[in-house]
């Protein structure tokens, strides 16, 4: 294991966060705070409790997931796309590093950044709503596994993208709608039966449900189902990344 290379990539990516502190940390915190103010305090004060949880507290796991997913994808996709764009990828391709080490560096840094951001948002939520976490270890587990999975997904997008528009298109037109329609702001039981069925096709719904369970012990679907969907998506991402490294798709001729 070339652990110096893993450390070099990881530190390099983390240093980029420091340089882009506003974009990486402050901007998502401000956006999430606005969600708490608008949905949690203003509108939420007029909505009754959902499954015994106040509306403001109910949306916290979903909002954390929204940031976690979008930031994991954004950090990892940009991390690998930027060297492709500038041409500095030559150094990575000519270095004595394995694909696992490259992944550990890029995906590890992207996941670390999004987990830190999620924890900051969680702390921010405390200012707006009373929070308690019923299963803190499960909460951390969901946080870490989701961050890793979607950072892997972001890495795939970064490899696939050959322009900045493609880099943005999946997070904007796929991930954000899936999170919004995955029960961030409501319980699936509040939807008409047809839309309940449609929601069950949305993989993000299972993540939010499982994550919300770790907070309040209530969920739209069983923990096992959430876990299986998450594992399935992680396995898909791992297979896709393995194929990318084997074939050299979009990185090596």
């Amino acid at each position: 294991m070339n652990h110096y290379a893993v450390a070099a990539i990881y530190k390099f990516e983390m240093a980029r966060t420091k340089r882009t502190l506003f974009q990486s940390i402050i901007s998502p915190v401000i956006s999430t705070s606005l969600y708490f103010i608008v949905f949690g305090s203003a509108i939420g004060s007029r909505i009754t409790e959902i499954d015994g949880v106040s509306y403001g507290a109910f949306i916290v796991p979903g909002l954390i997931m929204l940031s976690l997913l979008t930031q994991s994808i954004s950090n990892a996709s940009f991390g690998i796309y930027f060297p492709k764009f500038t041409g500095t990828i030559y150094e990575l391709l000519s270095a004595p590093v394995s694909s696992i080490e490259v992944l550990l560096g890029y995906v590890g840094a992207a996941a670390t950044k999004s987990i830190l951001l999620a924890l900051i948002i969680l702390a921010t939520a405390h200012f707006f709503v009373p929070l308690e976490i019923a299963h803190p270890l499960w909460m951390l587990f969901f946080l870490v596994v989701t961050a890793i999975t979607f950072s892997l997904f972001g890495f795939i997008i970064g490899i696939w993208a050959d322009n900045f528009e493609k880099l943005q298109v999946i997070p904007l037109i796929v991930i954000t709608p899936l999170v919004f329609l995955g029960g961030t702001f409501y319980s699936v039981s509040m939807l008409p039966p047809f839309w309940q069925t449609v929601t069950q096709l949305n993989p993000v719904f299972y993540l939010i449900s499982g994550f919300r369970w770790s907070f309040y012990g209530v969920a739209d679907v069983s923990l096992i189902t959430s876990f299986m969907v998450m594992s399935g998506f992680l396995a898909f991402c791992l297979l896709a990344v393995t194929w990318i490294f084997k074939s050299g798709y979009q990185i090596k001729q």
Binding site: F12, P83, T88
Partner: peptide, 22 residues
């Protein structure tokens, strides 16, 4: 081909690490 925002020290140190050197 360089990362425009990195310092000279950081980019050279990065290369050393990437090639497996302490």
């Amino acid at each position: 081909t360089t990362d425009a925002f990195e310092t000279v020290w950081a980019t050279v140190s990065f290369s050393r690490g990437l090639f497996g050197k302490k």
